[in-house]
Design a binder for these strands. Structure first.
Length: 590
RNA sequence: GGGGCUGUAGUUCAACUGGUUAGAGCACCGGCCUGUCACGCCGGAAGUUGCGAGUUCGACUCUCGUCAGUCCCGCCA
């Protein structure tokens, strides 16, 4: 190229008027007025209007006349002030333009499959197929820049606080305890597989044993599970671990980190210390273990009321060990039958069997289950819910977690519909005191709610064998605007306690030694007390950018079927490759 | 594994209750235009209605299957 740039499009302003500059960039838009030709040139830094007059040499004019959007060009010219009546207030460089003297077409572009300046054109799969074009759009450029800024803020903060960045293996041992692993065959080890890390959990604990007492890594993690708007098969974690700490130490420094990131990226103050709620309280009040606390709309316990009614569904639920909870919805007594049916269907997605309701009107309780409610019961209900005239009260009778989760889902849905969620508000909260175990719904066996390395609360250790479901974990999650953006725990660091934990999970001594022997062995060589946390960087960027899909904050994401329309991955491979890996397929490769 | 929604020129959308040659904006091509900035004006080209089957005199439209995208449930230690 002849005309190499000495400025970028974001450098130019009124202060540079009179300067001779050279810029390189893409054609954003162009306007041919006959005797005068305007081209808006775009690069990563900004947008600047270039004017081509018709006194330029015809070699230049002939090319300029046939320029297209997204052609790559070089322009040499003078920065000049625009006539006062031709100022474009919509762009930052709107007061100036470049009067072109020399020009070079660096590369032509064929018409793009969607318009770069209009992100609403082009379906998502088309934009994913041409991701390098989508990344040219303002929105994605802004998102990727936000991601960069947040990552840098995290690195700076952690470095300033003595955290050391250490890389851990991408090829590791498969431990099929939690999510399904991505497996990697090995040519030199026939019949054996590595797994891609679901998280560097064991490695960071081993780094603590090594004495690297503050570790971090911005690290890719892999899980072969179904995708969602906020879930990708590969995603990035801000992974941290610290030695000689308890829960409060980790919380204090990590909420400081998140607060710093918000300040440095979008200028928002997240006041610390963050509020702390227990898992039980989060479930009881918000129906979620990652509550959105930007709005009230809280769930109420109405069991005293339920017992006083003649509604048999309530009584049988209670007899079967279930609970009765209510969600009072202000000013929703006007809801139609159809609307309430919609809410019922929404609740059913979360395992609810039905949804009872009653309307609080001037004439008392009406509609729904009103006929089962006598005067005494009505008083109990209004006391428990603080419902005002004009409110709708929704009831759920079910198992504790099902009832609350379903009401929590309705809470979120209704808050959005009523506009209770303010877009520019950010409220984070710690959720603590999680149960250590939960029952696997299929097998009924005990599984770790967080992971098997999470320490039980010291006062609960005695109940590990006798009453495991009552044992609480030394775990903490950070929820932000209804997203779980981080989670961690104080870890087990003693071999015997770790072995008891494995045993409680139904992992035999030999199996534990085979799968996690390296960790158990390490605990015998002076393992310090330690704990840590991992934040989902992608979700954090989602919140910072206000996006509702994780794909919009990842440079090259996958579709919901875990495919890449751009490069066609995953794809079949040659028989030769498979032979090298000692692999035979059971199905035809696609 | 299950459910919802969507699929029509390059692209965004339209096409009545199943009925003539499937239309329009943007993009593209040609022409005109010296202050535009979503420039404007005139003209042109552009379609296996995702794919396959069925119902029908007739299917973009109805039915079934399939593929893809997306959202949700399950799943995500």
């Amino acid at each position: 190229m002849r005309l190499k740039r000495d400025h970028n499009c974001g450098d130019l302003s009124k202060a540079t008027v009179g300067k001779e500059v050279r810029i390189n960039g893409w054609i954003n838009t162009r306007r041919d007025l006959g005797g005068i030709f305007f081209v808006d040139v775009r690069d990563r830094y900004g947008l600047i209007q270039v004017r081509f007059n018709n006194d330029l040499p015809s070699e230049i004019l002939d090319v300029v006349k046939h320029l297209n959007n997204e052609d790559v060009i070089a322009v040499a010219g003078t920065i000049v002030e625009r006539p006062a009546d031709s100022v474009n207030k919509k762009i930052t460089s709107g007061e100036i333009e470049i009067e072109a003297r020399d020009f070079e077409l660096l590369n032509k572009a064929i018409p793009t499959p969607f318009e770069i300046t209009k992100r609403e054109t082009g379906s998502e799969d088309l934009r994913l197929k041409y991701r390098y074009l989508d990344l040219r759009t303002e929105t994605l450029k802004r998102n990727m820049h936000m991601r960069h800024k947040a990552s840098q803020a995290v690195r700076r903060f952690l470095n300033d606080n003595n955290f050391m960045e250490v890389e851990t293996p991408i090829l590791m041992k498969s431990t099929p305890e939690g999510a399904r692993d991505f497996l990697v065959p090995s040519r030199v080890n026939p019949g054996k597989f590595y797994a891609l890390p679901q998280s560097p959990q064991t490695y960071k604990q081993l780094l603590m044993v090594a004495g690297y007492d503050r570790y971090f890594q911005i690290v890719r993690c892999f899980r072969d599970e179904d995708l969602r708007a906020d879930r990708q098969p590969e995603f990035t974690q801000i992974d941290c671990e610290m030695s000689f700490v308890d829960e409060a130490d980790v919380r204090v420094i990590m909420e400081d980190m998140i607060s710093t990131v918000f300040k440095e990226t979008i200028g928002v103050d997240i006041p610390t210390p963050l509020p702390i709620v227990s898992f039980d309280e989060a479930m009881e009040r918000y129906g979620s273990d990652k509550p959105d606390i930007r709005f009230d709309l809280e769930i109420k316990n109405v069991e005293a009321f339920a017992k006083a009614t003649e509604f048999s569904v309530f009584h049988s639920a209670l007899d079967n060990g279930g609970v009765i909870r209510a969600l009072p919805v202000p000013d929703a007594a006007v809801f139609s039958r159809k609307k309430i049916d919609e809410l019922t269907n929404h609740a059913k997605k979360y395992g609810a069997k039905g949804l009872a309701f009653v309307k609080n009107t001037e004439e008392g309780l009406q509609g729904g289950i009103a006929k089962f409610i006598n005067e005494d019961a009505a008083k109990l209900l209004l006391d428990a819910t603080d419902a005002k005239v004009g409110d709708l009260i929704l009831f759920m009778a079910d198992e504790w977690e099902t009832a609350l989760t379903a009401l929590g889902a309705l809470r979120t849905l209704l808050a959005n519909e009523f506009g209770l969620v303010k877009k520019d508000e950010y409220k984070a909260v710690w959720v603590v005191d999680f149960p250590l175990f939960e029952k696997d719904s299929e097998s009924g066996r005990l599984v770790a709610r967080h992971h098997p390395f999470t320490s039980p609360k010291i006062e609960d250790i005695d109940k590990l064998e006798s009453d495991p479901m009552s044992v609480k974990a030394r775990a903490y999650d950070m929820a932000l605007n209804g997203y779980e953006i981080g989670g961690g725990s104080i870890r087990i660091y003693q071999k015997d306690l770790q072995q008891r934990m494995f045993k409680a999970l139904g992992i035999g001594k030999e199996e534990a030694q085979e799968k996690f022997g390296f960790l158990l062995d390490a605990f015998e060589y002076g393992a310090p007390p330690h704990g840590g946390i991992a934040f989902g960087l992608d979700r954090l960027i989602m919140v910072l950018t206000g996006e509702s899909s994780i794909r919009d904050v990842i440079a090259f994401p996958k579709t919901t079927t875990a495919q890449s329309p751009m490069d066609g991955s995953p794809s079949g491979v040659d028989t030769k490759q498979l032979d090298d890996l000692h692999i035979q397929l059971k199905v035809d490769k696609g």
